[in-house]
Structure formats: structure tokens, C-alpha cells
Amino acid sequence: MTKVPVQFTLNGREQNEFVDSGSTLLAALRDKLGLYGTKAGCHQGTCGACTVIIDGSPQLSCLTLAERCAGKSVTTLEGLTGNGALHPLQQAFMEGFAAQCGFCTPGMILAAKSLLDRNPSPSRDDVIDAISGNICRCTGYDPIINAILTAAEQLRGARKSA
């Protein structure tokens, strides 16, 4: 299989990889780089478990060719804060019972992170819209929506006091 060199930014650090031409970013993250925080739920772009942030927007890594990430910046759950501390979204998910089996959680948190980066004061409907591509089979969504709104409030407070 043809190998293609790809240079991109992964969780804030420069990354150089040879990937199989036609292989997905999901496969590169999990099978080549051992970043198992990105989950494979359907391999067909329907469940959102593999969501990562590419140049600021939430993308499905199972439908993204690894070679198309050249020159781009990719953030996975492992790179959410970069300093080992918990992000307010992670804290709110923990405290608000927004994760049960945990399998949708990485994609859910990254979809929410991308929303809050673009819109620090989302309405409930904005939150619902932002996670509409992410399926959760455990929680019934309400705890997740509440956790994202709680985290948004905390981030706004932190920004004000900064």
C-alpha cells in the first residue's frame, strides 16, 4: 500500500507520519499513534464517537483521510488542556453525571469544546445543535446539555475575572 508523508499539528505539537494512502485519521490516531481516547463507534459517520477538532471545527475522524490533515491542527481529548489539569467541560461532565458508559464522552466533549470556542454564551438550543451529531445511548442527553451549559458559565466567569 502506498505510504504518504503527512506533517500536521497534533495536540499542539508537530507530528510527522507516513500513513497508508486512503486510511482514515481515526486509524492513524488509534492504530499508529496509540491515542485511544478517540473512539470508533460506527466507521460510517453516524455516531460522532470519533469526533476531533480540526482547525477549530468538529470533524468525524472516521470519515477524514489522514493525508488530508497535512498542514492542519488536530486536537483529540488527550490534548484538551495540554497541562494535565481538567478542562471545565471535563469537570462539569464528572460532577453532572454526564458520562455513564463513557464511550461517547470524548466526542461529546470535543464537540462541546468547539462550540464554546466559537460561542462562549450558547443557548440550550445552541448546545443541542452542537451535539446533534453525537449519539449517547445512556444518559438521555439532559445531563450532557446541562454540563456543557455549566462549563460555559464557568469559562465566562474565569474570563471575566482574568
Binding site: L86, G102, F103
Partner: peptide, 17 residues
């Protein structure tokens, strides 16, 4: 809190795959 939730929100929970 769930005993496993820290792993879930940090992506460190190890599923079989």
C-alpha cells in the same frame, strides 16, 4: 461520582479495543 468517570472524561478508560 462514578468511580470510573475520571477515565471517561480524560479518554483514559481502556475499552477492549
Amino acid at each position: 461520582q462514578r468511580s470510573d468517570v475520571l477515565g471517561h472524561v480524560t479518554g483514559k478508560t481502556q475499552y477492549y479495543a
